[in-house]
Design a binder for these strands. Structure first.
Length: 560
RNA sequence: AGGGGAGUCGCCAAGUGGUAAGGCAUCGGAUUUUGAUUCCGACAUUCGCAGGUUCGAUCCCUGCCUCCCCUGCCA
């Protein structure tokens, strides 16, 4: 992979905050961030932005970024997700060193802190059920009403809370609530629930607990216990910041550390959906082949698609970070991948839609080798021989019986260069009775072979790729395109109806023989087509399978 | 409607009381054995709107408009 030149970071509001903190010595020059996913699903492109942001800041400021799982909801979380998340973060090129944590690591302390809150009259056990709590919460304009249990004594609360922990009550019968203000205009401050009873097995703590803390209570304490300095999250948590601060303010005597929560705008990308609910629907409906389908905007899918970690990092730098809710065009991500791949990927030849070309003046038994550079930008990558014979495979779209305006490839009477070989002149084509193109004919112009003194004696505009019929191998090539055909799926109809019916086209292509030796996940540019990757699951030398990562820019199709 | 946020070029995004960075896209032109890449050039008299303060405002003040988020015992 190329080290896409990490250019000097541009200013953004988060860096400004950190610079200010460093100047004032607020944290003694420390910078500690964290990436805190819940292990209840697969990571997607949006997470890549957060990962690159958090780990990138830690790297740039000589700090650390903690990998922490927010695993407080046992019914939804699984080890499988933990594993896939760790793999994805590692794949993106980041290392958390020793700093791998779980909110569940803190269950004991979280519990003790809750008792402290109870003892100080800052939390109480509410015995209303969920509906009753909801009914008394009020709404956007009306204040809530106090729970009838709000004034239980600390002793009473403590006893109840301990019995909750001991498993004496069924799910939903009691909760622990922070005692803040039922009339607050911020709904999050209307005595938020901080513990609930869940007789469920947790993926790490098993059946040790039957009460589990909620996010608002857990996250801030976890940050503080880890001595995080800047707790970066997405915009929808802005309303939660007062609660984050409230909890840590109350616990100040016990924890002595109070990270700053900073919110940024999550990634919105055109032509895909990033909501967990919609991704699940795509997978479960069979619209895509699984969580790592190359069309899915998951990191597992991205990897299988051939996207690169460096491309994602470049993308994150390029789109910046701010608090404005914006949409990034998918073309930006694609261009970042091209930019990385152009430097990193060796070139190879593939004919995706083969049609036969016969060089009528070339002897049947003759064969000669032509040398093709492996990378035009890196001569040290060397050259490889490609065999030229009388009959070749060329791209069907490189021939037009009656050429469109501006078309400068093969048509009767026109000359083009067989890339890395000779200039040829087209003499016509054969068709079957139904008028289908069978094969194209041409004559080779001697003395025009690439690399020989007379090579440029004949000037041509067109330059096409080819493969010897005798030597090319067959392969399955999966041509992936955007999953949706509209920039904002689901705006005018159900998003499932906006699926691009041509998001995957599978073709039986011809490849140069060397490609059979490719290893899964090896990336190449198929010249004049785009970037492709050997499928990490299905590719093998006997049955090569390549996925199109992204096409080359093509100003010709754009003008036609 | 109550609370919390955001509005700077087609898309992102810096910036700041002193006269609008950069990237992507786009459009020209050069190079090119990938209609790719690379290169060179062009690209906001203007910062949501309306007032006000000021010698001077995108930046300060006032009012307005638009968009996003919030009524889980999810995160």
């Amino acid at each position: 992979m190329s080290e896409s030149a990490e250019k000097p970071a541009v200013h953004n509001f988060i860096r400004n905050i950190i610079d200010g903190d460093n100047a004032s010595q607020k944290w003694g020059g420390r910078v500690a961030t964290r990436f805190p996913p819940e292990p209840n699903g697969y990571l997607h492109y949006g997470h890549a932005k957060s990962i690159c942001l958090n780990f990138g800041l830690a790297r740039d400021y000589g700090g650390a970024c903690h990998m922490r799982f927010d695993d407080t909801n046992p019914e939804k979380e699984e080890q499988e997700y933990v594993d896939s998340i760790l793999e994805a973060v590692r794949w993106l090129g980041f290392d958390w060193g020793e700093h791998q944590y779980y909110a569940s690591d803190y269950f004991d302390r979280l519990y003790l802190f809750a008792e402290y809150l109870i003892e100080h009259g800052l939390a109480y056990v509410d015995s209303q059920n969920a509906d009753q709590i909801r009914a008394r919460r009020g709404n956007l304009t009306e204040p809530g009403q106090d729970s009838p249990y709000r004034n239980r004594t600390p002793d009473e609360n403590l006893e109840l809370f301990r019995r909750m922990k001991a498993g004496e009550f069924p799910d939903g019968t009691h909760v622990l609530r922070a005692r803040i203000d039922m009339a607050s205009p911020n709904l999050n401050l209307r005595d938020p629930v901080i513990y609930r009873i869940r007789h469920a097995e947790h993926h790490r703590t098993g059946n040790t607990w039957c009460i589990y803390p909620l996010y608002d209570y857990t996250h801030c304490i976890s940050d503080a216990l880890e001595r995080v300095t800047h707790s970066i999250c997405t915009l929808e948590f802005e309303d939660h910041r007062p609660l984050y601060d409230w909890v840590l303010d109350q616990l100040q005597p016990l924890i002595h550390w109070h990270p700053q929560q900073i919110e940024f705008a999550r990634l919105n990308l055109t032509y895909v959906v990033l909501s967990k609910r919609k991704l699940i629907q795509l997978v479960e409906s069979g619209t895509v082949s699984g969580w790592d389908d190359p069309r899915l905007p998951t990191l597992a899918g991205a990897r299988r698609r051939g996207f690169t970690a460096a491309g994602f990092r470049l993308f994150t730098d390029r789109i910046g970070v701010s608090k404005s809710d914006t949409w990034i065009d998918m073309a930006v991500l694609e261009e970042c991948m091209r930019e990385d791949l152009n430097l990193a990927a060796q070139r190879r030849i593939a004919v995706l839609d083969p049609i036969r070309l016969v060089l009528d003046n070339y002897p049947q038994e003759q064969r000669e080798e032509c040398l093709a550079p492996n990378h035009p930008l890196h001569s040290e990558a060397g050259k490889r021989p490609v065999g030229l014979t009388r009959e070749l495979w060329i791209e069907r779209e490189d021939y037009q019986e009656t050429p469109a305006k501006g078309f400068f490839r093969l048509y009767p009477g026109n000359r083009v260069r067989l890339r890395y070989a000779y200039v040829i002149e087209c003499t016509g084509a054969d068709y079957d009775a139904q008028g289908n193109l069978l094969c194209v004919h041409a004559n080779l112009l001697p003395d025009t072979k690439s690399g020989t003194p007379g090579a440029d004696s004949v000037k041509v505009k067109g330059n096409i790729h080819w493969l010897s019929i005798n030597e090319a191998i067959e392969a399955e090539v999966r041509l992936y395109d955007r999953l949706f055909r509209v920039p904002h799926p689901g705006t005018s109809q159900d998003f499932m109806l906006d699926i691009n019916p041509e998001s995957l086209r599978v073709v039986q292509a011809r490849l140069e023989p060397a490609l059979a030796q490719a290893l899964p996940e090896d990336r190449y540019q198929f010249e004049r087509h785009g970037y492709f990757v050997a499928d990490r699951r299905d590719h093998n030398p006997q049955q090569p399978v390549f996925n199109r990562t992204v096409g080359l820019k093509d100003t010709w199709v754009k003008t036609t």
